[in-house]
């Protein structure tokens, strides 16, 4: 194993974050090995989204270190461009009130070039080719000319994956990406994510409430409730005793019904 392969994609040590003056994340440490799928679970208000925001450099931290691909995240979220370009983030939703005059192809194209100033028309041919391939791979080939605001929830999530896959990346961070989807759409999105992860060799960190999905497909689970309560393989971390400790009594992982009319829950 080469040293670059051995270096964790993400290494967090003693991370402490305050939000609105309250301690939201307290001395959390963990690592993500390359090409693994890790779920971050915990009750509402446990600090999951705050932790993710701090890892990406979107929130200041009070203590601790964050190493992304071996590079230290600066106090104000600074990262070398070569590292930043390897990270993709998939939010719960986009702010698309009313008619938003941006086509799907334009949006996906925004993910192609590295961060920094660029003229809108620069690199058009290369970008166009990459966008078409990304749309094809995510089953969005026919959506390129649609407006983002005209998409259904399921289509929008697939377009967000196209945004991530339009250029090679190492780390994909998802914040409750399946929230708001019905059961078939959620399953379709999950299968697409698994397939792309295999093809792209992504390391995935996903905030999720779908414990059955986490049990089925993740390599590692981090149970957060301000502090890291437990971590490890799903069978270990999602045992009834640990779930009861994390969420309170009588919590069991719910199961998807895979039939089209199946109930999510």
């Amino acid at each position: 194993m080469s040293s670059s392969t051995a270096t964790p994609v993400l290494a967090v040590q003693g991370l402490t974050v305050q939000r609105d003056g309250l301690l939201a994340v307290d001395a959390v440490s963990f690592q993500l090995a390359r090409e693994t799928d890790t779920a971050l679970v915990g009750p509402n208000g446990a600090g999951k989204s705050t932790l993710v925001a701090a890892l990406l450099g979107l929130l200041p931290r009070q203590a601790g270190t964050v190493l992304l691909m071996g590079h230290a995240l600066g106090p104000a979220g600074q990262l070398p461009r070569s590292v930043r370009v390897q990270i993709a983030y998939l939010p719960q939703t986009l702010s698309l009130q009313g008619r938003f005059p941006l086509s799907v192809a334009e949006f996906v194209g925004f993910g192609f070039d590295p961060p920094g100033p660029r003229l809108p028309w620069a690199g058009g041919q290369r970008r166009h080719g990459a966008v078409q391939r990304a749309l094809e791979r995510t089953g969005c080939r026919d959506l390129g000319e649609r407006l983002l605001s005209e998409l259904s929830g399921g289509q929008l999530k697939r377009v967000l994956l196209a945004f991530c896959v339009v250029r090679p990346r190492q780390l994909l961070v998802l914040d409750e990406a399946q929230a708001g989807l019905d059961a078939p759409s959620s399953e379709q999105f999950h299968q697409l994510l698994l397939e792309l992860r295999r093809q792209e060799g992504w390391t995935v960190l996903q905030v999720s409430h779908d414990l059955e999905m986490v049990r089925r497909s993740c390599d590692q689970v981090l149970c957060l409730n301000r502090r890291l309560r437990c971590s490890g393989a799903p069978d270990h971390a999602l045992s009834p005793a640990r779930l009861a400790e994390l969420y309170g009594a009588n919590v069991v992982p719910y199961r998807h019904q895979h039939s089209p009319g199946g109930r999510h829950g």
Partner: peptide, 16 residues
């Protein structure tokens, strides 16, 4: 940058 910022603050920030 302006469009990404309009769509989602965190998406834009994570993108650099």
């Amino acid at each position: 940058a302006q469009v990404l910022l309009t769509l989602n603050d965190d998406l834009a920030g994570a993108f650099g």
